[in-house]
């Protein structure tokens, strides 16, 4: 059955329940939890967020293995030692992976499809490999769904599109999206 009207085009025999009648049936209990948090970003992430407010992407290096963490960590997950040396990254990078999403979290259809991806950031001097690199997950703009679907977006050179300085709050959304580097 179903459909926009909630009724089949050819009615089946039986008694149809309206939505509000259904919701009033004993045995259905509605509840919406109140769960609010004030997360402490911590030492590493706070410094990173301050950097974003100033239009900088900061990473932090493990003194033991040389990995550069973006997003930063206070410790290296491989060596279990505190990270120490902060580096400012140029912000440019390449699209490592990207997908086109046609649905919202509640599975309703989006009017405009959305492209999100992981950007492999340029980190001069850091020996990264195929799966480990300084990077950021973000929205990707200026790229068409077709470019994502035919694979031509992968490897594309991109840079952050920053919000104007006066609108930045120290959040990952101080970067609106990553967009192709012109020329």
């Amino acid at each position: 059955m179903s459909g926009e009207s909630g009724k089949p085009k050819t009615p089946l025999p039986g008694t149809y329940l309206k939505r509000d009648e259904y919701m009033k049936l004993p045995g259905l209990i509605k509840y919406k939890p109140v769960a609010r948090y004030l997360f402490s970003a911590g030492q590493a992430q706070s410094r990173f967020l301050h950097g974003l407010k100033e239009g900088k992407i900061l990473g932090v290096m493990c003194p033991s293995c040389g990995r550069v963490y973006v997003p930063p960590r206070a410790y290296c997950e491989y060596c279990h030692t505190p990270t120490s040396e902060w580096v400012e990254l140029p912000g440019t990078g390449t699209i490592h992976t990207a997908v086109v999403s046609y649905i919202a979290t509640d599975r309703s259809r989006l009017e405009e499809p959305e492209i999100v991806g992981v950007i492999r950031l340029d980190a001069p001097g850091y020996k990264e490999d195929q799966y480990e690199f300084a990077g950021l997950f973000h929205k990707i703009c200026g790229v068409t769904p077709e470019q994502v679907m035919d694979g031509s977006a992968i490897g594309m050179r991109v840079k952050p599109r920053w919000k104007p300085a006066e609108e930045r709050t120290g959040s990952v959304t101080d970067i609106e999206c990553f967009e192709p580097v012109e020329g």
Partner: peptide, 16 residues
């Protein structure tokens, strides 16, 4: 309160 650390950093400190 421990506003100076994230919960992950708090665990790292205890673990160390």
């Amino acid at each position: 309160t421990t506003p100076e650390v994230s919960f992950r950093e708090m665990v790292f400190e205890a673990a160390t």
